[in-house]
Amino acid sequence: MVPDPVPGAGATDDLFKLLADPTRRRILDLLAERGTLTVGQLAAEFPDLVPSGISKHLMSLRAAGLVRATRDGRQRLYRIDPDALSTALVPWLARYAPYWADALARLRVLAERDRERTR
């Protein structure tokens, strides 16, 4: 088995692929706006799609940990898991950390040099 060159990069790519789908992004938006929703409530927002299609999207969002489900009597309530989103972004963000460190150091030199001049 070939190891991932960057630990966790595969997971991040999967996340972005998952979110590249506009229906899944819309589902996340709706959950973010309204807190919890049932499959039926979500399906009502997508009149062009069959409810089983919405269920499939919810399943892949749950598998990725982006959405959680709780049982309420006979129905399942879906809610977003914002921590999972933040965690999934960490490997991607790490790529930029050295660049930003350099950029901020340059900004500091520029701003502090101004201040010395005007003293």
Partner: peptide, 21 residues
């Protein structure tokens, strides 16, 4: 929640720093 990548302290007021943005 935004992921903080980096923060820095600059010895100049925000007005002076903003000039660079």
């Amino acid at each position: 929640m935004p992921a903080v990548v980096r923060a820095i302290e600059i010895q100049a007021p925000p007005s002076a720093v903003w000039k660079w943005l």
